[in-house]
């Protein structure tokens, strides 16, 4: 499954968003997600299946002003 993860082209197994997070080592991390530009709540990750061409953003708390 070829998706864009945080701006980078990746080939991942998935198929759900939660599977992808586990695959990249963030299965239990405090992160928020957006799929194709729209917010994807944490509760929806296990039932949301990715497909080729999807863009997934995974963000975390960071320094800010």
């Amino acid at each position: 499954m070829k998706i864009t993860l945080n701006g980078e082209a990746r080939d991942l197994t998935g198929p759900t968003v939660q599977d992808v997070l586990a695959e990249i080592g963030l299965g239990a991390a405090k992160v928020a997600t957006a799929l194709n530009g729209a917010f994807l709540p944490a509760a929806a990750r296990t039932e949301t299946t990715l497909k080729d061409g999807d863009a997934l953003e995974v963000v975390a708390p960071m320094q800010g002003g």
Binding site: N6, K30, V31, V59, A60, P61, M62, Q63, G64
Partner: peptide
């Protein structure tokens, strides 16, 4: 304290604890 969100590059979890 003001904070932001950025792509997780490995440091976000530590920062969250610090905050």
């Amino acid at each position: 304290a003001t904070v932001s969100l950025r792509r997780e590059g490995g440091s976000g979890q530590d920062f969250h604890r610090l905050i």
